[in-house]
């Protein structure tokens, strides 16, 4: 995307992801303080995208980040990070990256075998943000939280309040949600309407091989690219290709 000289001031302040090839699709990054949603089927690269968003914030942009895992364990996320040369322990000790496994709580208590709800998460984040001064947040995943609610209507109502709370914090958030392969864009069909942006990752069968793609379907306050772009997993992490899938 080309931003014409003299129009830069019209672009809201950005939070760059640092993911190669992505930020140029969205005028330099997510709008600062916005709530963003990334959806995709298993194996499409959601978790890696989110880890890089948080890790790059802590290491490249001096923005401490928290990664809230609700389904994956700390060990599991740590292993992914280590696989791409990211030093979780060092960043945690430096107070720049906080990996929180809230799923460990429900797994460990005899009375809490149900999913953590959004109000619990809000209660957690109020304290977490105040004590850590984070500027970026990842919630992995909304799908795990949604199990707490009886109907999509209940989920939508609670998510509306939760996303409003997130915007009020000023932290730039990235929420992960599942997307069934070949079906709806998001698992519950409501998540994308409440976020400021919506990125969709897909796995496509091309001549017998799976190919990852990324599409920016929505981003408020942003003139964004709307094409479908190939995504590659390299040693350094995800790379979004400039070319478009036709």
């Amino acid at each position: 995307m080309i931003v014409r000289p003299g129009t830069e001031r019209l672009v809201a302040p950005r939070t760059p992801t640092g993911i190669e090839g992505f930020d140029r699709l969205v005028q330099g990054g997510f709008p600062r303080g916005s709530v963003n949603l990334i959806a995709g089927p298993a194996g499409s690269g959601k978790t890696l995208f989110a880890i890089q968003f948080a890790h790059n914030g802590a290491t490249l942009f001096d923005e401490p980040a928290a990664y809230l895992a609700l389904e994956e364990s700390r060990d599991s996320v740590d292993r992914v990070m280590a696989g791409f040369g990211m030093d979780l322990k060092g960043l945690e000790e430096a107070g720049k990256f906080f990996l929180i496994d809230l799923g460990a709580i429900r797994a460990g208590s005899s009375r809490d075998g149900v999913a953590v709800g959004l109000r619990d998460l809000e209660d957690f984040l109020r304290s977490c943000i105040a004590s850590t001064q984070i500027r970026r947040l990842v919630v992995d995943s909304v799908s795990a939280i949604a199990l707490h609610y009886r109907s999509p209507a209940d989920l939508r109502e609670e998510m509306f309040a939760f996303t409003r709370f997130l915007r009020d914090t000023g932290v730039t958030s990235l929420l992960i949600t599942e997307a069934p392969e070949g079906g709806r864009l998001t698992r519950f069909g409501v998540e994308q309407f409440l976020a400021d942006s919506f990125l969709h990752l897909a796995l496509e069968d091309v001549k017998g091989e799976l190919r990852r793609t990324l599409t920016v379907r929505k981003m408020r306050f942003t003139k964004h690219d709307t094409g479908k772009h190939p995504v590659h997993v390299t040693r350094e992490g995800l790379v979004v290709s400039e070319e478009r899938v036709t």
Binding site: S73, R74, L88, K89, E92, E93, G95, F98, L99, I100, D101, L102, A104, I105, G108
Partner: peptide, 10 residues
């Protein structure tokens, strides 16, 4: 339990 949730920092 806290170590599992948030590591040594927490």
């Amino acid at each position: 339990a806290l170590e599992h949730v948030g590591g040594a920092r927490l």
